[in-house]
Design a protein around this nucleic acid. Structure first.
Length: 502
DNA sequence: AGTGCAGTTGACTTT
DNA sequence: TAAAGTCAACTGCAC
């Protein structure tokens, strides 16, 4: 009996539990559905589509080599699935469990309702450490690690295709009515790209991971750069976990040992954050802390928002990071935290205005990481200590010789090194050798102080402790390393909090 | 040689 | 994944 393999954020054939299941049930029809409504959402951008389109092209070739036709169809998921099921006599659909945005969550409920109504079986299979319908965070880490320790699945043996399937075109970004999105240095899609990155990271680039990841200048090479491949599934997390573990066995100590264990812990954090959105999809739209809803104006200051998004705030390091992100679709983790924190604290912009901007700029946009992180860097989760980055200080520390800042802000060429991160203090600023660069749109010291006062006032308000402990119970890591005073007050659950790393 | 002191460093706390 | 403040210990140096 024919089986429809619905591909979503899993654009690969290797280590694919859902595909392995499908292959055992009958001839497989792999389908990718290009959903115009998905691409009309506020978090969608042409750079995502570009990566997916390249990955689909590669996947189509890999599938063909196995005698499978990868069908690509554009339209509403229910309509496409209904047509294919009718035409190919299919009563079973397999897919991975997607932790997506609210739109894809609603679409999945629609598909589920339709399938139930039609008597079609839709089986969703996990592909990472994220656990659906998780009853409690207690014990989550062990379950996640258990999944990662399972065998990496090889290409399913005896995979058979469905006859008479038309391949269908891969639409262009223009056909999807996506806005022009020049990203000249975007990473390329396709599994081979991902495998190449994994290999070069584990054999060479990753050696100085720990020391080099914090700076946008050195992080570009020393970070794995696997994020878009994980986001769109050209590589599985489990493959990366096990490849890293194999490397750890041969290089247990020294710089490599530290680098590899840092990388492993970040792969685990990735699942940890995705689990939050899986458990509570409204993290995309509502502050985790109800009390934080009143913190900032919901309507953002339009000119501040525009200046931030385009790298024109007058704060050099912040602007350099934003321009780099626009041009590459990537930014190292620390700088992502800084650009988000600066938008939320210094510029006092609501995360619901800035979060979608970053979602569209990150070529590796992963909803399950993005929204919890956006909230965390905005001080609206109640459970995380507000971390207010100082863009001047970060610039001095992460770009001490100014190379990165100067590369992305050519208008500052005439500014002496000593004034690079605070050019408005340079006596020659007014002329700038004839080039234009704005005065900072806010006074960084005053803005930082005001934001700190406001956000800490929330934490002192009556009821904060109870709210925070309820949120921690639902979402906080149980790892002992994360034990913090913010969570130790109130109704402590020491056994749960300390249950790991034993 | 020991003492006093300004300045620095690092651990820890507060916001 | 922060930054600023506090305080004690330490350092270098003058006398």
């Amino acid at each position: 009996m024919n089986v429809l393999m619905w591909l979503k954020r899993d654009l690969r054939l290797h280590d694919h539990p859902a595909l392995t299941l499908a292959a055992g049930l009958g001839p497989v029809l792999p389908v990718y559905i290009v959903e115009p409504e998905l691409w009309a959402q506020h978090d969608a951008a042409a750079r995502h589509w570009g990566f997916i389109a390249e990955s689909l092209q590669a996947l189509r070739a890999d599938s063909a080599a196995l005698g499978l036709t990868l069908a690509i169809r554009t339209g509403d998921a229910v309509e496409v699935l209904a047509r294919l099921c009718a035409r190919h006599g299919i009563s079973r659909i397999i897919s991975h469990e997607e932790t997506g945005n609210l739109w894809s969550f609603a679409r999945d409920r629609r598909v589920a309702a339709w399938a139930r109504d039609q008597g079609i079986d839709w089986i969703e299979v996990p592909q990472s450490g994220v656990i659906r319908r998780l009853p409690s965070r207690d014990g989550w880490q062990a379950r996640r690690d258990g999944f990662m320790a399972g065998p990496v699945l090889l290409l399913p043996q005896g995979l058979r295709g469905v006859d008479g399937v038309e391949a269908g075109p891969i639409p262009t970004a223009r056909a999807l009515r996506l806005a022009e999105d020049r990203c000249p240095h975007r990473q390329r899609g396709g599994r081979d790209e991902g495998l190449g990155l994994l290999d070069s990271f584990l054999s060479q680039r990753g050696e100085r991971y720990r020391a080099a990841m914090s700076s946008p200048e050195t992080g570009e090479r020393a970070c794995s750069r696997l994020s878009p491949h994980f986001a769109f599934g050209t590589l599985s997390i489990r493959e990366a976990v096990q490849a890293t573990a194999a490397r750890q066995a041969t290089r247990p100590g020294g710089q490599w040992g530290g680098a590899l264990s840092s990388f492993q812990s970040r792969l685990a954090w990735r699942d940890h954050f995705m689990q939050k959105l899986e458990d509570q999809p409204t993290i995309e739209t509502d502050c985790l802390s109800q009390a934080a809803e009143a913190l900032r104006p919901r309507i953002p200051d339009a000119s501040r928002l525009a200046a931030w998004a385009s790298g024109e705030t007058g704060l050099p390091f912040l602007d350099a990071c934003m321009r780099y992100l626009v041009a590459t679709g990537w930014l190292n983790f620390r700088m992502r935290a800084m650009v988000m924190a600066t938008a939320s604290y210094h510029l006092w912009l609501d995360w619901r205005a800035t979060g979608p901007v970053l979602a569209r700029l990150f070529a590796d946009y992963e909803p399950g990481i993005h929204w919890p992180q956006v909230q965390m860097q905005s001080g609206v989760t109640a459970i995380n200590t507000p971390r207010i980055y100082n863009p001047v200080k970060q610039g001095l520390e992460q770009d001490p010789n100014g190379v990165f800042t100067r590369r992305w802000l050519p208008e500052l060429a005439s500014v002496p090194d000593a004034f690079l991160q605070e050019p408005w203090k340079w006596p020659g600023f007014a002329t700038l050798a004839g080039r234009r660069y704005p005065e900072p749109i806010i006074d960084p010291a005053a803005a930082q102080r005001a934001a700190r006062d406001a956000v800490w006032a929330l934490r002192r308000a009556p009821g904060h402790k109870d709210e925070a402990s309820a949120i921690a119970d639902r979402h906080a890591s149980r790892s002992a390393r994360r034990f913090s005073p913010a969570r130790s007050g109130g109704k402590a659950r020491p056994s749960a909090q300390l249950s790991f790393e034993l």
